[in-house]
């Protein structure tokens, strides 16, 4: 595990373009990946990749947000900011997974849903809401892994899972620290300050009960030794999937419901009462 890093340092590592991305995870952890494209309604969104693959020989559905490393790659995947078509494609693949009783594994690394004109016209809010609604009642195992930055409803739309795992230096938050600072203090340059207050690191979120496990990264971050990092992700994912695979469909749906039902429902801070 890395030495103690500040939240702002973790944000920088989480955004490092050399960090393993969805294509690296698919290449390293899965075999026989077949990519499925399109939402069957009107479009295809390169910001979300999805398909069927074998995980340790078992068919699974893999879905993840996609960030590129080069300008050209990023144009194709809109810098990892999905449009409604992407979320609807993800939902289509999740329903398919339900039909064929395949576990669903999602990889989250996005600065948020795309705040564009067309995305709004085509119902960005409705697309995200529908995913939350439908994911909550799936009867197959769902595991979400926050691998880089997971921002806003755009990340949560792939995150209603039985287990939410997080890489040690990944961050997961209501929105970017820059956005947070600009809304709260009308000053985006105070983002480093925001990072420390937002409780967006993996240890913070484990303590808050938002995530279930932390996947250790090599010293300095996953990009310094990707092979080691990918092996750690595999090990953690494999263990959680094995545990969930013992549960019935009804128990998986009920367990997922309860997990999110209790969030923020705890008794209000008692010292104030």
């Amino acid at each position: 595990m890395s030495a103690q890093l500040t939240a702002a340092e973790r944000v920088a590592i989480a955004r490092n373009p050399q960090r393993p991305n969805i294509m690296d995870y698919i290449g390293a952890l899965f075999t026989d990946f077949f990519e499925c494209k399109g939402d069957r309604l009107c479009g295809e969104d390169g910001a979300i990749v999805g398909g069927v693959a074998l995980y340790h020989g078992r068919p699974v559905t893999v879905i993840g947000t996609r960030k590129g490393r080069t300008a050209e790659e990023n144009l194709k995947c809109n810098f990892g900011m999905p449009s409604p078509e992407g979320y609807r494609k993800a939902l289509r693949l999740m329903r398919q997974a339900e039909k064929f009783r395949r576990p669903i594994i999602t990889f989250i690394d996005t600065s948020g849903a795309y705040p564009g004109l067309e995305a709004e016209e085509r119902g960005q809010g409705e697309a995200i809401a529908r995913n939350l609604f439908e994911m909550s009642r799936l009867t197959v195992p769902v595991i979400a892994i926050v691998t880089g930055e997971g921002n806003s409803g755009g990340a949560l739309a792939l995150g209603v899972a039985n287990r939410v795992l997080m890489l040690e230096n990944a961050v997961y938050a209501i929105l970017s620290p820059e956005g947070f600072a600009s809304i709260l203090w009308k000053d985006a340059s105070r983002s480093a300050e925001a990072c420390e207050m937002m409780q967006l690191t993996a240890p913070d979120l484990l303590r808050l009960g938002v995530i279930d496990d932390i996947i250790p990264e090599p010293e300095g971050g996953a990009h310094t030794a990707p092979v080691v990092a990918l092996r750690q992700v595999d090990r953690c994912l494999h263990r959680h999937l094995a545990e969930l695979s013992k549960e019935s469909g009804a128990s998986l749906a009920a367990g997922r419901y309860q997990k999110f039902r209790q969030m923020g429902a705890a008794a209000p801070d008692k010292e104030e009462q």
């Binding site: 995200i128 209501i174 409780q199 967006l200 999110f260 969030m263 923020g264």
Partner: peptide
């Protein structure tokens, strides 16, 4: 979102939808 409640504000989206 309620900024001051951070990620727990975000999780209310999943809770109410579920």
């Amino acid at each position: 979102a309620r900024m001051q409640e951070g990620i727990l504000s975000l999780m209310q989206m999943a809770k109410t939808s579920a």
